[in-house]
Design a protein around this nucleic acid. Structure first.
Lengths: 359, 359
DNA sequence: TTGTAGGCGTTATCAC
DNA sequence: GTGATAACGCCTACAA
């Protein structure tokens, strides 16, 4: 026998880790068999009303909670999703995560998180659990995709994997829920143009990331539509962090000439840019207009409040979790989705007349 | 027999969900028994070197991954911690969570998260898993503690539950890792005093939360030390959100008279306060000094950069996870801990001379 | 409508 | 040093 019945020699007060009741215990209490308990609690229709009530009462009184591991082992599904996130310090992702968690919960799933920028090996290891029943599906939120997952997808396996937030290349085979990055970026630039700006620069993210390329393409699209020049000096290589924005600002100041407006690849770099510009006495939007992309909480209290694109994080979270659920459970399958974005116009992109009201 | 051997009638190409190899498979491949595989992979010393190598090679080639649920069921422990978090949109918590996740991973644990402000019932339900082996311990980050957990702790049960970030009342029986909130708050106010400010107000958080009371107490302590008046009009009832800060600012403006400085209960409310003050033409720190508490990412790029207390989130995360691990595994037990805080001095708390350098 | 039995994948005890 | 075996708690095909 692999285990002593129940270490009776330490009955002290109340065992620190008292065994919690199992279905067998409830069965005994209710005077039925364990299978009847299982069926009752599962709400199967074949159970008589009287039995169901007796079982439920017994379970209630004993404080019965189902054992997740036993259930998962038996059913070969865990009702847990793995969410791969690059950086929780980025509010874009933490807010998305919160909404994913909520949406997953409402659909009967829990989540585990894997940080991809902290340790690239780790999400790979976590992703392996997809093959051992540890997790039922994977939600990607960055461009990163674990090697073993990607290779299987490329081999045609239809794994329950969905990407949201970060754009997915067409034809990659990964299901996706995203916004139209190019159009969203173009919308920002069109707004700057409508405000009277002509020389509109773009502080771009790292070109190794698809999202940076797409936002740059949107900027180009809007310029082309308006017949404005793109001039190589207007494409400012930057990045997505505060420091990147600061660095670009310093470079502009040093060069001695400013464009009319700058469309930044995201809000965070816009904060860095504006902070450094202001430090040098440049007034926003009077001397130069600035716009970002993301709509973080602080974009509205920055001085000046930042014009930006609101990422529909909640909508993307809900749609992507639902999509993933469908892939897992195999019911009526959804399709890849484009979620509408929204341009948020604030003071930073103002027309730049020196005597504007600050109502 | 509860299950058909392996649905042989759909051998199509490659089963969408091919069964992943188990220990029995590896045993067959290596020509040993399943127990030997288990012992080999666990690194038990009684296995011969030759056998261990054969097993490891077989596992490698077959791409064997252990099944988390089977293991947890057998061992009665999951190596998963539940982290209860009130709000991931608050960078304080998302940053803490990131560090908790990292620390947990390095100690061999995974985490699940439960939002407590979204749905108060949910964390309670998740916490129940502590009693069915679903999770091994709970990390509390807010004042909230699930009812069933609290009642057991009050009854003297020594559950693996640790609170960090949010202060714990003395004698509550909950293990804790925290900063000295009162001293940290007093440090901020002492700094304001040292900068020459006399009438120092406090924008307080909700008094239903212990943390608000403690920071207010620190404010009082510093004032008392310096023999400064506390004046009832200097205690400004507010809250921890942007809107609370804005509301207080509007009240101050309407009242027509400003204190020399305001110590805000946290950074976010300070942002709201400053934004609204600036909108009314008040200059910071020239007309009024402001300080906060938390040190968020944007506190350094706010205009002006905000003087605040850096919460040692990483240190708290690491210490609390380690503490929890010790409680779970029962080894040499740690003690409740006070983690050192750090005052971050930036421009917002300047002495207020109208012609200060902005070097 | 309910009970019996077998097994999900792992680990620990016992015997060799 | 290794193998057979039972058991963790649950679900379900089959029998009654």
């Amino acid at each position: 026998m692999p285990r002593k019945p129940q270490d009776e020699n330490t009955p002290s007060k109340e065992s620190v880790r008292a065994r919690s009741p199992t279905m067998a215990d409830i069965a005994r209490l209710a005077g039925v068999s364990a299978s009847t308990v299982s069926r009752s609690l599962a709400g199967l229709p074949e159970i008589s009303e009287e039995t169901r009530i007796r079982v439920e009462r017994a379970a209630q009184e004993a404080g019965y909670k189902i054992n997740r591991h036993a259930r998962s082992l038996r059913l070969q599904r865990s009702a847990i999703l793995l969410v791969l996130i690059p950086d929780l310090a980025n509010q874009n992702y933490s807010d998305l995560l919160m909404n994913i968690d909520r949406a997953a919960f409402e659909l009967g799933y829990g989540i585990m998180i894997g940080h991809t920028n902290v340790d690239l090996e780790r999400p790979d290891r976590l992703a392996d659990e997809l093959f051992t029943g540890g997790i039922d599906g994977i939600l990607l939120t960055s461009g990163y995709c674990p090697a073993r997952i990607r290779s299987r997808i490329e081999n045609g396996s239809r794994l329950p994997v969905v990407r949201t937030m970060s754009p997915t290349e067409a034809g990659s085979g990964i299901a996706s829920v995203q916004i139209d990055e190019v159009e969203a970026a173009a919308d920002v630039v069109r707004h700057l143009i409508a405000n009277g700006h002509r020389r509109i620069a773009h502080l771009a993210g790292p070109m190794t990331e698809l999202v940076s390329q797409l936002r740059r393409d949107g900027w180009r699209r809007a310029l082309a539509e308006a017949g404005l020049p793109e001039g190589q000096d207007l494409l400012l290589p930057g990045g997505f962090h505060l420091e990147d924005g600061k660095a670009v600002a310093r470079r502009l100041i040093a060069a001695g000439t400013l464009p009319d407006a700058i469309f930044c690849g995201n809000d965070e770099s816009a904060f860095g840019l504006m902070t450094e510009l202001k430090r040098s006495g440049v007034r926003i939007p009077n001397d130069i207009a600035v716009a970002g992309f993301d709509d973080l909480t602080f974009s509205q209290v920055f001085d000046p409040p930042l014009t930006t694109v609101r990422l529909p994080r909640r909508e993307m979270a809900e749609a992507s979790v639902l999509y993933l659920k469908q892939m897992i459970e195999g019911g009526a399958s959804l399709e890849d989705q484009i979620v509408p974005h929204e341009l948020i116009i604030r003071e930073s992109s103002g027309p730049g007349s020196p005597h504007r009201d600050r109502s």
